[in-house]
Structures are given as C-alpha cells and as structure tokens.
Simulated assay, not measured.
Amino acid sequence: MLVEIRNYKVKHGDGNIDYYEVFKLQTEQADFEANVNRLEQAKIWDVVIEMVMRKDLPDEFEVSSELVDLATRFRRLYEPLDIGNYYRHSKGDDTGDTYMTKRPKRYKFTQRWYEHANVTGFELVCESNFVAEVEELMTKTTIEEVKKDLERIVNKVEKWKSDEKIVNEDVYWGESVLSRL
C-alpha cells in the first residue's frame, strides 16, 4: 500500500500542484482510491498503536529498525493526506481546533520512534506535518503572527532539507505548498 501512495505522490509531483493539494481537491477516481488506502492504513496503524499502549507487543518492538523504517515511511507519505482530509472537510472550523491539536496518535508515536532511533528531540512540527502549519498560518489575522510563524516554518524546512537522515523519496516537499510561504 505504501507503493500505491508513493506512485500517487510521484504522479502529482510536477511542482505546479502536489499530491497534498490534489488529494485535498478530490477531483479524480485516483483521489478516492488514495483516500480508501489512507483509511485502511490508518486502521492498521491505530491497532498497532493500541497494542503498543496496552503492552501487548514485546518491549523491543518499538525499537526494531525495520518497524521504525516502515513507520517513518508510512508517516511521511500518509500524514499529509490526513492533513488534507482534515482541512478539506473543515473539521476544526466548528470547534476552533487545528490539525496539530487533534493529530492522531499513529503519527505522534511513529514520529517518536523515529526520533528515539535517531537520537533527536521530539518536535511538534516535523517533516510530515508541516503542511498543517502552513494551513494554520493562512488563518492568522495579524502581520506579526504571520511573520513570526513564517520564520519558524521556513527555518524548519531549511533544517530538514540539510538533514541527510530526513531527505529521501518519502519526504514531502511540495513546491506549490511551499510557494504559499
């Protein structure tokens, strides 16, 4: 299933519009199929996370390099789709919540596994969810808020671009989203 979403991403990676925005628009059958794929994967990872939380899995499960690699690829490919779905349906409009306040455990846990394996500190904003920060930036009302948050986001993106451990085929660098900055 990761291969299918990677192919979906590559198909929409021409720089004019990227897979996050294409998915958010939902205009083609392929977008619907990607959404079904997203929901299936979410269900699987939610079960895995619940098993980890209940301690139904061996202690070494969370530090397995194969699991960390798979979980990281999953997070980097699928979280932008979850963010697109969240903002496409305007889920936070009625409650005032943002994606980041409602971020699913499947991404928080898999991010922590990656950061633990690579000896980095946990950061709320990571390479797979920065599009949520961009979406939220567009809702700011004052220039001061926008400038402060924009500078923070741009610095993070530059850091990720220079980090050899982060830059790979699964990392989301949508030109059209970044051009909004």
Rank of each mutant, 00 (worst) to 15 (best):
L67C: 07
D97M: 00
S90D: 11
D82C: 03
R76F: 12
A34G: 13
Y86M: 02
W45N: 04
L39C: 13
R75S: 11
S64T: 10
G96T: 12
E60H: 15
N35S: 08
P58E: 10
F32D: 09
L77M: 10
D82T: 03
E33T: 03
I83T: 11
N37R: 08
N35R: 13
D97E: 13
Q41H: 09
W45A: 06
D56F: 10
K55G: 00
L70Q: 06
N85F: 04
A42T: 02
V63A: 09
M51C: 04
I49G: 00
D31M: 15
R54P: 00
S64E: 12
S64H: 06
N37E: 14
T98K: 11
V52L: 05
E62F: 00
V52F: 02
D94C: 04
R76H: 12
D93Q: 06
D97T: 05
K91A: 01
I44T: 00
S90Y: 02
S90A: 09
E62K: 11
G92N: 01
M53P: 00
S65I: 12
T98C: 07
T72D: 04
F74I: 03
F61H: 06
S65C: 04
P80H: 14
A34R: 13
Y86Q: 06
E60G: 09
Y78I: 02
R54S: 10
